[in-house]
Design a protein around this nucleic acid. Structure first.
Lengths: 344, 344
DNA sequence: CCCCTTTGTTAAATCGGATTAGCAAGTTGC
DNA sequence: GCAACTTGCTAATCCGATTTAACAAAGGGG
């Protein structure tokens, strides 16, 4: 049985002052006059007793719990998105805040009840996060609260969003290919996902493709074709096999995810083509497999850690939140899958 | 600005009773006599006003916050271990509890300060989790508290542990090979990790190997050799390549992790050997890649989701916790990498 | 010497509930 | 008809802090 916690009353008693004085001495407020002698005695007593304020009790009066709620659809499960949580956790720790993590699994009713559970515990603010970048409508319980949208957008909902800069990432993919000398024989595998079967495609696909096409065109290069397909390994394998079987001979593939790239690798390998000797590959996401594939995959990293961190930094900033979209850069991870275009 | 929360006083006023009566009516306690009429009026008023109790305020009196602290070294980051959190989250939600998730990143000082932050917020209990199964010494602040150790063991620390049943998993790997007809040409890649460079090997390696050898021997089979190496993809690739180069011709490989298996696949492929036609592979962990490799990998799943769930279920059980080790089964995921032994 | 500040401190109220102790009105027992 | 219960409810206190209001004591000015 844990011994009774030391309270401020204990500290005050030991220091020979009233609880009021102890409170002011400990909070270090200067608007209430406390003599240096008293202050020192209180601080000393607190140190000796190992006093720690009861945040719960304090919050009853101050309304602040130094606590943030984190509501997501299913973020812990997404293999690489755990980084979002780590980023949020670290930023929160630096500011002496704790995070209630919750997952509603896409269930609206569960989402509402979790938000209630958070509000019942007096969280100071709520981060509403999605595992893939997409449009959302937050539960009504969050209206009028201090909220930051993480990896999602909600037009009409008055809160800032933090999302990856997919547009610039598309441009960077194009720049990487141009820099290696590619001008033709370039194919995109995965496409816009204009009517997506894969939820993560909704926004990312469009923006990546838009940035890609813009810079390729400006650089005097041509996109030979766009293969629209889902974003998983079997899709990449199937579509690239089909592409080769149809007689096409791409010099560079822009795969919309690392999983698609893995499928592309398999298909190229089966066709006896080497990466990057015969075909260069540039990808998006930087999942774990990207570094492990042979050759290692050059890819534009989804900045999950930074997304989590930025959301917390934003929400703990003083002052009101502005409904602005914050775009976090997607760094290029240069590895071994891009080479000079093959002759022929 | 969110409008003022409805308090119990509001409900009492609307129902025309005292706060005391409202409190008893709402908590539904039967030891204090409240007339059915009053009870109904209070419940009705609460419903109409949308009253929700302030858990923080309540906890000041009751000491219970319906809140659990979760301290880990770096669990969100470990790609597949996020399932631990999901299991814990779901079990907690079913019981109307919320989780404070924290990560100390292996830093003892950070760990202490996080535990303090949790205790300052009056958590009812703490789950102390490790990303890999290993021996730990929890921070002294947790002594005498309600604690469950998750995926770790702490001899001398009075708390239950929840860990994967690695021993039985080793046995199951052996049984799977025996069932396919394997009796010889069996090699283990990864080994005991008696003096491990890879932290996850400390306990898992020993137990997996012990179970494996026990059942193989009992089944009249022989383990031709054990290759001691780290547990990552390059290690599997290197060691299996070396094994083949040395003239060995294994019929079955027991790879101690899926990452080692992936390396083994690469090495076998480069040598022109097929799985499972020439060589069967059985593995441990069931990371995401296991299902994606070609052929799909037969592996013993680390039950992360169940570990998280069990820990929460245990900690929320009434009554004192017993310092017992709970072993969670590792289910066999039968896929396509085990076949009959090759002739030869 | 008295009034007015300034300084240092504390009693008391507050936050939103839970809990203890007690009080009025109606019933029962004899 | 009065003590003893039972029923139904409420006043008051507590939980551990913060904050407001007020109050002594000391110093300064005239």
């Amino acid at each position: 049985m844990p011994e009774r916690r030391v309270t401020m009353a204990d500290v005050a008693r030991k220091a020979g002052v009233s609880p009021t004085t102890a409170s002011f001495a400990l909070s270090g407020r200067t608007d209430m006059r406390i003599s240096d002698a008293s202050r020192r005695r209180v601080l000393e007593a607190a140190r000796e007793l190992g006093y720690r304020p009861n945040v719960t009790a304090r919050s009853l009066r101050t309304k602040s719990t130094q606590t943030i709620g984190f509501v997501s659809d299913r973020i812990t499960t997404t293999p690489f998105a755990g980084e979002v949580i780590r980023g949020a956790l670290e930023a929160a720790r630096e500011r002496d805040h704790l995070l209630f993590i919750t997952e509603a699994g896409g269930d609206r009713a569960a989402e509402s009840s979790l938000v209630h559970a958070l509000l019942d515990r007096q969280v100071d603010a709520v981060i509403y996060a999605s595992m893939f970048t997409r449009y959302v409508t937050p539960p009504k319980e969050l209206f009028g609260r201090r909220v930051v949208l993480l990896n999602c957008l909600a037009p009409g909902f008055d809160a800032p969003s933090v999302v990856p800069d997919e547009l610039e990432a598309g441009r960077d993919a194009a720049r990487a290919l141009l820099a290696a000398g590619h001008r033709e024989g370039i194919w995109a595998i995965g496409g816009h996902q204009a009517v997506p079967a894969t939820p993560e495609g909704i926004i990312a696909g469009n923006e990546r493709m838009r940035g890609l096409e813009e810079v390729l065109r400006a650089g005097g290069a041509r996109l030979d074709g766009v293969v629209e397909c889902d974003w998983n390994t079997p899709d990449g394998h199937r579509e690239v096999s089909a592409l080769l079987a149809a007689g096409h001979r791409p010099r560079a593939l822009v795969c919309l995810t690392d999983r698609v790239s893995m499928g592309a690798y398999q298909a190229l390998g089966e066709a006896g083509l080497s990466v990057p000797g015969d075909v260069s590959v540039v990808s998006f996401d930087d999942q774990d497999i990207a570094a492990v594939l042979r050759p290692a995959l050059t890819t534009l990293k989804l900045p999950h850690y930074q997304l989590g961190r930025r959301a917390v930094e934003l929400i703990l900033r003083k002052g009101p939140l502005e409904a602005v979209v914050h775009r976090v850069p997607m760094p290029l991870r240069e590895r071994a899958s891009i080479g000079a275009p093959a002759e022929g």
